[in-house]
């Protein structure tokens, strides 16, 4: 399932949800938006992911549970 993981910080991740354990949330083929560094807004980033697919920057990524603010399906997040 492809999800949007929003953190308490500036980063938002889009990728395939694998699992969640004591290390955090495990994602695959992950695209990243950093509000502090990116040119476009998070909403633009998510719309691009929806229309053109996810430009994966990380094959595998673990986001610590404490950083996770919200997880939604991408398709639900953008529509």
């Amino acid at each position: 399932m492809t999800v949007v993981l929003e953190t308490h910080g500036s980063r938002t991740y889009v990728g395939r949800f694998d699992s969640q354990d004591e290390r955090g949330v495990h994602l695959h083929d992950v695209g990243v938006h950093d509000a502090g560094a990116a040119d476009g807004s998070k909403e633009e980033f998510l719309r691009r992911c929806d229309k053109f697919g996810i430009r994966a920057e990380h094959r595998d990524l673990v986001v610590p549970s404490g950083e996770v603010a919200r997880i939604q399906r991408l398709i639900d997040r953008v529509r």
Partner: peptide, 11 residues
């Protein structure tokens, strides 16, 4: 038009 995997899975 392009339909991606994320627009298919779980539906």
């Amino acid at each position: 038009h392009f339909l991606h995997r994320h627009q298919i899975e779980g539906r």
